[in-house]
Simulated assay, not measured.
Amino acid sequence: MRAEGYLFAGVAAFFGVTGAMYGWLAAEPAGTVALTVSFLMSGLVALFCWTQHTKRGDRLQDRTDIPIADGAGPLDFFAPHSLFPVLCALGAALFGLGVVFGLWLVLIGFGVLIPAAVGFVFQYGQRRP
């Protein structure tokens, strides 16, 4: 994950410098906000990749001194079936439609999205690796 961390750190640096220059020269708030949000999102991905690298070390794909056969077998645990992704998508769609059509739909979307996201995150919280 080290290479991915450096890649997204470079993307974050690009958006940070571009956003600062754009905000200073253009004085237009929408583009400045979009570049700032892009900087924050790519910085978050870079931070995630870097913490995963420091926590787990080099992956098999990152090392050149091992044979390909050492990477065979199951990679990780993947959920076999779950309704939580569908509920998250439904809540996000209702939330987005609520921005267009009214506060009542935003509240319904928020009411569907939050429990679905919590369930999605914690559905296998008790599972041991």
Rank of each mutant, 00 (worst) to 15 (best):
R59S: 14
G91L: 09
F77P: 00
A72V: 08
L87M: 09
A92S: 12
A79D: 02
F15H: 02
V106L: 14
D65L: 07
F95L: 14
L87P: 07
Q52S: 12
F15L: 01
R2G: 05
S42N: 04
E28K: 01
F14C: 05
G19Q: 02
L40H: 13
A69V: 15
V106H: 01
M21Y: 13
L83Q: 00
L107P: 05
F120K: 04
L83M: 08
V33H: 03
A69D: 15
R56F: 12
A27F: 10
S38Y: 03
A20V: 14
L75Y: 13
L113R: 09
V86G: 10
G73W: 04
T64I: 11
A27S: 11
A3H: 12
D70C: 00
M21N: 04
V99N: 08
V37Y: 03
A92R: 00
A69T: 11
Y124S: 08
M21W: 03
V99S: 12
Y124E: 01
L107T: 13
F120C: 06
V106I: 15
F101E: 10
H81W: 11
L103F: 11
G5N: 05
F122H: 12
R56M: 00
R128L: 15
A46P: 06
T18W: 09
V17T: 10
Y6R: 01
L90F: 04
L40T: 07
L103M: 14
P80N: 05
D65C: 06
T32D: 06
L75V: 09
Q61P: 07
D58W: 13
A12N: 01
L60Y: 14
